[in-house]
């Protein structure tokens, strides 16, 4: 088996959060990323999906050392990464941010923005630099004369293309797309998604595709990891995830999405509010809102286990039908029609 491009082992990132307002009392710890492990192979797209506060963006940033990991290992092409090798990492892995309006510096010309990585890594200068920049812009579907314009002159979709061009300048093998289409209008979103797919084909890119939008993630990914409060709760191929989600949270998430062609599908009810990341529930972090929860769940946090070949889930009752859940819940359990 070939070595994976990126391997993450037990990665953890904690933040210290100050509580207590003006008094400065009490420090809480937010476990934004809590013991996460996964791999990405060359040329594949791993989707990372979850709602706000699940830690997916923090995870993306930590992998790139934009945040210092608290503990755990990151291996790139088999070699462990440390602070010293970070510059090398930056040639191999890049990121495209969410907000097209704040991810481009307002006072630099587009040509400079896209060319800067080449300058930083000493990959081109002068005339060659210009040519490379023009080529990159064309690759992402922009006219070469865009290089002379400023970010404020471009639309959201165009800016995002610039962001992609910038990320591709160093010819990385891994690109992290951190909610890269979430701020775009629907009609533009599809263009960018198609572009990303084309680029993946052309340049053999691996993607870590972070998004809260399950439809987008399904379209783009080969495999998907679902996150909840800093942990991966399910990890498998796209097909398996949508056909037979094992984790109750995944099931709830999938059923919450409005469906175009399925008006009367039953919802898996999800009660309660998303918990405070600084005060997570004991045991399984999802248990207060889970239909299948039993006493075990409040005491023992489930590990990510391979319940079926190639299909990992972190739940004590992964294979149980939701209908067979405990009768403690007030609302009757509902079947999901897939």
């Amino acid at each position: 088996m070939t070595q994976p491009l990126l391997e993450v082992r037990s990665l953890t990132k904690y933040f210290n959060v100050q509580a207590g307002g003006a008094l400065g009392f009490g420090r809480k710890i937010v476990r934004a990323v809590d013991d996460v492990s996964f791999t990405i192979s060359a040329g594949e797209t791993l989707g990372l999906v979850g709602e706000s506060g699940c830690g997916k963006s923090t995870l993306a940033r930590t992998i790139l050392f934009l945040e210092e990991p608290t503990s755990g290992e990151i291996l790139f092409q088999g070699q462990p990464l440390t602070g010293k090798r970070v510059l090398e990492l930056r040639r191999q892995a890049q990121i495209v941010f969410q907000d097209p309006y704040s991810s481009l510096p307002p006072r630099m010309k587009i040509g400079s923005i896209v060319g800067d990585p080449l300058v930083i890594h000493g990959l081109a200068r002068g005339g060659e630099l210009k040519d490379r920049v023009a080529q990159l812009l064309e690759d992402v579907g922009l006219k070469p004369n865009t290089a002379d314009r400023f970010a404020y002159e471009l639309s959201g979709g165009q800016r995002q293309r610039v962001g992609i061009a910038r990320a591709l300048a160093v010819q990385p093998s891994l690109v992290i797309a951190d909610e890269s289409v979430s701020s775009l209008d629907v009609s533009v979103q599809a263009q960018i998604l198609n572009l990303l797919q084309d680029l993946q084909q052309r340049h053999q890119l691996a993607y870590l595709f972070v998004s809260h939008d399950l439809g987008v993630v399904k379209y783009m990914s080969h495999r998907i990891a679902v996150m909840y409060l800093g942990k991966i709760v399910e990890l498998t191929t796209t097909d398996k995830l949508y056909q037979q989600p094992l984790n109750p949270y995944t099931r709830a998430l999938l059923s919450a999405i409005p469906k175009m062609h399925d008006r009367d599908h039953r919802r898996v009810p999800l009660k309660g509010e998303p918990p405070d990341p600084a005060k997570p529930p004991p045991g399984c972090k999802f248990h207060p809102r889970c239909l299948l929860a039993q006493e075990l769940c409040s005491q023992d946090a489930p590990e990510l286990k391979e319940w079926q070949p190639g299909h990992f889930a972190a739940c004590h009752f992964a294979l149980d039908d939701i209908g067979a859940g405990s009768a403690v819940r007030q609302q009757p359990a509902k079947e999901i029609e897939s």
């Binding site: 009609s187 533009v188 979103q189 198609n194 439809g215 399904k218 097909d239 469906k259 175009m260």
Partner: peptide
């Protein structure tokens, strides 16, 4: 029609390509 086709819905068939609407929204 184009809007419907360009939304990556959950119930899309695998391998079906999104029909993106070319161009930009008018300012």
């Amino acid at each position: 029609q184009a809007l419907i086709e360009s939304v990556p819905r959950i119930d899309l068939e695998p391998g079906e390509r999104l029909a993106a609407i070319p161009g930009e929204l008018p300012s």
